[in-house]
């Protein structure tokens, strides 16, 4: 729980600083995108620290390419 709180706090500080920096440069859209990506990362990191199930892109790739790689692995004759 403490880890999650620290991650959230750090993300909040970085987000505020990034937003202020971009807004002062007259690029608010960049600030919004940056803070949005940071929020996704922070949720991901907090989810990991709380041992919650978080989406893994490798599972998506495995699912999509399942019909292709299975025959290849069988042809190669390796056990993975």
């Amino acid at each position: 729980m403490l880890k999650a709180a620290i991650i959230g706090l750090v993300a909040l500080v970085i987000g505020v600083l990034t937003w202020k920096n971009r807004r002062s440069s007259g690029r608010s859209a960049e600030g919004l995108w940056s803070v949005g990506i940071l929020a996704i990362g922070a949720v991901y990191a907090i989810g990991y620290s709380l041992r919650m199930p978080i989406p893994n892109p490798v599972d998506l790739i495995s699912f999509v390419f399942h019909p292709v790689y299975k025959p290849i692995v069988d042809w190669l004759g390796i056990q993975v």
């Binding site: 940071l38 996704i40 990362g41 990191a45 990991y48």
Partner: peptide, 26 residues
């Protein structure tokens, strides 16, 4: 892709995604 003037504001946000992702990827 997002039409930024520089890539630097994205370094920290993307690092926040990469570190936990690298820990759970396998």
């Amino acid at each position: 892709l997002l039409r930024f003037s520089t890539y630097r504001p994205l370094i920290l946000p993307l690092a926040f995604i990469i570190v936990p992702l690298s820990l759970v990827i396998y």
